[in-house]
């Protein structure tokens, strides 16, 4: 029986691991991806984590992982498929039939990319449609691509792709972007990025691979030719495991305050999966630390 089981090894989970180990709690970090460090690994560049300016996301994740390993955190590669409340503990069932028991759970399972759910999206996935610009950008040297979305991810994807592709379109359903000002300015100053605003994609068209996007603007149908499409329209929280155990808001985020305390005894939520305003690496790391402290206090109260 562990004191703390941490689900997810992104910045929130790894930070929780560091604090839990330093509090001398027996700790296991459970991550479904081999050596995974969460979504940050897919960022081409992180410019807003204090002290590590301009680091690429993969390297930043590796540093976090090495730090947690250095303090002696134990790691298990497994996907948790069910959480069962037991007497003052939780049993975590893995997809390969194992069970892990822990007195507390720090839930840092993050979010996954939202899909458009329109015609052709599944059909052309990995055949011209991608959710990862740094992974698949290099297939589009001197070609035309479209990025769909208007947040930080969409605009930084577009900037990354503008260095590879001949032309990058950003298709966004509103007039204004949600992305931060610095990204918006950079996009505006990039000659080969063109904006298509107030446009709602309705279908991806192609044969063996994608060749165009159909979108609606001003009640009119338009077709944009594109060799590749990158979808970056936000995320959905991976909170399914906690349904019926802890309170979840209408968007699927686990309801928890700054200390990570959820409605369920002994479960603490950290990182992007938690209800909060700013989902960034730095707030995820802070959440992890707070959750480890909350778990420590919870355990010491149980023992006294």
């Amino acid at each position: 029986m562990y004191d703390v089981a941490i689900i997810g090894s992104g910045p929130a989970g790894l930070s929780a691991a560091v604090y839990a180990k330093r509090a001398e709690l027996s700790t296991v970090v459970i991550e479904k991806e081999y050596m995974g460090t969460g979504q940050i690994a897919q960022s081409s560049r992180v410019d807003n984590y204090l002290g590590l300016y301009g680091e690429n996301g993969f390297d930043l994740g590796e540093k976090f992982l090495a730090h947690a390993q250095a303090v002696g955190a134990e790691f298990t590669e497994a996907e948790i498929i069910e959480m069962i409340p037991d007497s003052e503990s939780y049993i975590l069932k893995t997809s390969d039939g194992k069970e892990i028991s822990a007195r507390t759970v720090i839930y840092a399972a993050g979010t996954k990319r939202r899909r458009l759910e329109i015609k052709g999206e599944s059909e052309f996935l990995s055949k011209g449609i991608s959710f990862c610009a740094v992974c698949d950008g290099s297939f589009y040297a001197n070609k035309t691509v479209a990025v769909i979305g208007g947040g930080d991810t969409a605009l930084s994807d577009a900037l990354y792709l503008s260095q590879i592709a001949k032309k990058v379109y950003i298709i966004h359903r509103r007039e204004v972007f949600r992305a931060n000002e610095a990204l918006q300015k950079a996009v505006k100053n990039t000659a080969n990025i063109e904006l298509i605003l107030n446009a709602v994609p309705v279908e991806f068209i192609g044969d063996k691979k994608i060749n165009s996007v159909k979108f609606i603007r001003n009640n009119e149908e338009n077709i944009l030719d594109a060799d590749g499409v990158f979808i970056a329209i936000g995320s959905i929280p991976n909170s399914g495991l906690l349904k019926g155990i802890a309170d979840i808001d209408e968007s699927g985020y686990v309801i928890a305050d700054e200390n990570g305390i959820t409605s369920a005894q002994g479960i603490f939520a950290a990182g992007d999966v938690r209800t909060k305003r700013l989902r960034q690496v730095i707030t995820a790391a802070a959440d992890g630390a707070n959750c480890a402290e909350s778990a420590r206090i919870y355990l010491s109260q149980k023992r006294s």
Binding site: A41, S44, F58, C135, G137, S138
Partner: peptide, 9 residues
């Protein structure tokens, strides 16, 4: 691809 994290994994 060099920049691809899943590839590195």
């Amino acid at each position: 691809s060099d920049s691809c994290v899943p590839c590195k994994r």
